[in-house]
């Protein structure tokens, strides 16, 4: 294992504009002849941390604290207004599963489509095809259009593609909670396997159980700022103490 961190987050800040009057049509822009009114809301405000290579890093915090925004910045979906993010190796993110599926295409076609959206080459998908299908448990329906899938099958197939991308750094939002109990157990095993392979995982979760079980380190974020960072057990106890004192 290398000593260099897998992800370096340096003073990241991101603001959203909260519009009270917004010019989102030409009529508004031309007729009103004035600038839109807005105030800045800093969803992330000066966050810095490092994720060691091969570790599992958890993010906790209340709803709206900026966890998911931070994941989106890590996934390069949102660009920070200030600061930088450096990642070593390939990064893949699991923010929503099956979002690139085309309903009229078959499961097989969608595996290839979604795989390439997530950055896999056709060769890689072909090599992992059986693994993906077996993991999803929808082999019987693989040549049916996915619009005929049940929502559970749909999500399972999406998750199976995403989990097989094989990146160096995997970024996961609360999607661990898909499928039935059996599938959840399968997912937990898969994450353990990835961990054992030395992959770096960054995940957001509200479940302290998951956090305690999976994470080596954790960070607590509140109102776009870092509150505590350290080993998972310490952060959890700090966070839970704060929640308890408020309640």
């Amino acid at each position: 294992m290398s000593n260099e961190p897998a992800v370096v987050v340096d003073d990241v800040a991101l603001k959203f504009r909260l519009y009270s009057e917004r010019n989102d049509s030409l009529k508004a822009a031309f007729m009103r002849r004035r600038k839109a009114r807005y105030e800045d809301f800093w969803a992330l405000n000066g966050i810095s941390f490092e994720v060691p290579t091969g570790s599992t890093f958890g993010l906790v915090g209340r709803n709206g604290s900026g966890k998911s925004t931070l994941l989106k910045v890590l996934s390069r979906i949102l660009y920070p207004d200030r600061g930088s993010i450096t990642a070593r190796g390939t990064v893949a993110s699991l923010l929503e599963v099956g979002s690139g599926f085309h309903p009229e295409l078959t499961g097989r076609e969608n595996i290839y489509l979604n795989g390439s959206i997530l950055g896999m080459s056709k060769k890689e998908v072909t090599r992992r095809f059986d693994e993906i299908v077996d993991f999803s448990g929808v082999r019987k329906f693989i040549d049916q259009p996915v619009k005929n899938y049940s929502s559970g099958m749909y999500v399972r197939l999406g998750f199976s593609v995403a989990i097989n991308v094989d990146p160096d750094v995997l970024i996961v939002d609360e999607v661990l909670a898909v499928g039935d109990a059996a599938f959840k157990a399968k997912c937990a095993n898969k994450f353990q396997e990835l961990k054992n392979q030395g992959k770096t995982i960054v995940l957001v979760t509200h479940s302290m159980g998951t956090l305690e079980e999976m994470c080596d380190q954790a960070a607590w974020i509140d109102q776009g700022k870092l509150v505590t960072i350290g080993d998972a057990a310490t952060v959890i106890s700090d966070y839970e103490a704060a929640i308890a004192s408020e309640a």
Partner: peptide, 16 residues
């Protein structure tokens, strides 16, 4: 490769 897959999606999906 992503581009060719997206093109395929459009071509195949359109007249399904």
């Amino acid at each position: 490769e992503l581009l060719s897959n997206l093109v395929m999606r459009e071509v195949k999906g359109k007249y399904r």
